[in-house]
Design a protein around this nucleic acid. Structure first.
Lengths: 189, 189
DNA sequence: TCTCTAAACTAACAAGTGTTAGTTGAATTA
DNA sequence: TAATTCAACTAACACTTGTTAGTTTAGAGA
């Protein structure tokens, strides 16, 4: 139990450093200093640097996968499903800004788990685009390139981690709502 | 002249490698192998690894700054200015996909030029948001949070480098148009 | 009190890092 | 032809990297 807590602290601290400089630019000595210990002591709690990255990225990716599955299989309109996806990204990102930076920028440094991660991401995007296609077929969504729509939404949602920390005044609900408004209804009068 | 060409080849090759693995994960020996030479030989053409990164990022950043200044000072409606910004991002990104990856992911590894880069980026965003605010005041753009609008557009535009290489069939004009449509008019019917 | 264990430490290693010095052969210029 | 320059090379450097081995210290449970 204490073990778990200490390990979690290390991972959390690592995520913060990874966000600032990227996985490869952060050394185990950097991480140790930030934890107030020596580099070798880290290995009482973690197996390797690589394991830290894996813990950060895979658990988050699985959270997104589970959320997407729930939304995909729900009974809402397709536009509402898209709104739920926006809300999910805002919520997960608000609670895990540092980890989201690794998910977005350092996934390519996964080794053993790289294929698994890519599979989760592909499945996620496949579900996303299916929702868009269903929305177009049901005339909820304009007849335009579904990939452009997904790309545009997903780019914005994946960049949230850069932006949420600067806007702590805005609460998650308000942000999700105005984001949905802009992404779905556009900006022009 | 030959010197210039060879140096440019190195920078171009470096950009490709940086895109795949990030600045810190690419060694001078990796770059040399990709160029078909030994690491030490690179230094006949470039001053340092850091110089390569600087050449890639700063020239691109200045291109965006110049483009933005021209658009900002033009006589079009604010909505049209936004469309021109979209087109500029598509065009610059289409010609520089690899370099754009460094601009987006490795700017924090700039050393001497970091402050200059950040200044260019801040100025760019300041002009962007001024256009949005003018558009709102002129009733061309919906009354909603200008920062949310900019964030959403800019996130999409900054991610283009990830997506354009996968869609070589789509020409730059068509892409700019459908992107403008989605970003400005939204996706719902 | 004695034992065990968690969690820190010091010291070190082998591999890899960016970079420099000095050299060589081919091409270009005088 | 002789001199110079270009652009590659080999060899090596000082330093940093992730990681391991073995040791120490403090607290918990018997």
């Amino acid at each position: 139990m204490t073990q778990q807590t200490r390990k979690d602290e290390i991972i959390k601290t690592a995520a913060k450093l990874f966000k600032e400089k990227g996985y490869n630019a952060v050394t185990m000595r950097d991480l140790a200093t930030a934890m107030g210990m020596k580099a070798a002591s880290l290995y009482n709690h973690i197996k390797s640097k690589q394991e830290i990255l894996k813990e950060i990225i895979i658990s988050l990716a699985e959270e997104f996968t589970n959320g997407m599955d729930a939304i995909y299989n729900s009974e809402n309109s397709n536009i509402d499903k898209l709104k739920q996806i926006v809300a999910m990204h805002v919520n997960i990102t608000a609670c895990n800004t540092n980890q989201m930076a690794s998910l977005n920028s350092d996934w390519m440094h996964l080794e053993d788990q790289l294929d698994y991660y890519l599979q989760l991401r592909n499945d996620y995007e496949a579900n996303f685009i299916k929702i868009i296609n269903q929305g177009i077929r049901a005339s909820e969504i304009k007849q335009s390139n579904p990939e452009v729509i997904m790309f545009s939404m997903l780019s914005t949602l994946r960049s949230l981690y850069l932006w949420i920390p600067k806007k702590e005044d805005l609460n998650a609900n308000d942000l999700a709502n105005s984001l949905s408004e802009v992404l779905i209804h556009g900006i022009n009068k």
